[in-house]
């Protein structure tokens, strides 16, 4: 990620959301982006994941620059390389837990999407809730379904936006452990946005954003940019 900026125009006024962000994330690395509300964490996550476009600069994912890709190409890239976990789970309300997990695999054209989804539900401990709809599941259970959905396509990068913020402390810890465990098993690069210092501590690296700028890139166990 080099010289990344994001500006938005609100009521004829240009607001700078992100300013001159430079960051390099290695394959298999876990990285936490922390900062106060409105510091630009989610915007940065969206741009890194190809959900949004930067105003300036570019993001390269596996050597592919996202700036010059159109929405279709970015969608294909997300399908092949990226997994997501969201604070509000974002399951499709009209599909069961099993069907939600199957969805990315089916979009990718995996023939055995159902078996894969069943295996992943088993891994997250929800095999017995496969036929339940999201509103029949607790918050923790919904987030476990979201984790299974994120891993089913074996993404190279997993983006997590405040994965435990909507959960109580105990459930939050369970979800965090599950996330890190599966991440380790699959060798996925994990980029997570969080308020939670404790969760950020579990990552290899922590980036602090303030007013749209990185103010404290802090080394843990890996190389620093």
């Amino acid at each position: 990620m080099c010289n990344l900026s994001k500006n938005v125009v609100v009521n004829d006024e240009t607001l700078s959301i992100l300013n001159n962000i430079n960051l390099n994330v290695k394959r298999g690395e876990t990285i936490a982006i922390v900062g106060a509300s409105g510091s630009g964490k989610s915007t940065l996550l969206g741009i890194m994941a190809g959900l949004d476009k930067p105003s300036e600069g570019d993001v390269k994912l596996g050597g592919v620059g996202l700036k010059n890709l159109n929405e279709e190409q970015r969608a294909n890239l997300r399908k092949d390389m990226i997994g997501f976990i969201f604070q509000s789970f974002l399951l499709v309300p009209s599909l069961t837990a099993l069907e939600n997990v199957m969805l990315p695999a089916e979009l990718k054209g995996e023939k055995n999407a159902k078996q894969l989804a069943q295996q992943w539900l088993e891994k997250v401990g929800l095999a017995n809730r496969a036929d339940h709809y999201p509103n029949q599941l607790s918050g923790g259970e919904q987030q476990r379904v979201a984790i299974a959905r994120a891993f089913i396509t074996h993404p190279e990068v997993l983006f997590a936006d405040e994965p435990s913020a909507n959960l109580d402390t105990h459930t939050g810890h369970i979800i965090e452990s599950l996330l890190f465990e599966l991440n380790r098993e699959n060798g996925t690069t994990l980029i997570l946005v969080t308020h939670d210092e404790e969760l950020a501590e579990k990552c290899d690296r922590m980036i602090t954003l303030h007013g749209g700028e990185i103010i404290a890139p802090e080394a843990r166990h890996a190389d620093v940019v």
Partner: peptide, 8 residues
Amino acid sequence: IIKTLGAN
């Protein structure tokens, strides 16, 4: 959500 998961 579906688009985020990679649907074009």
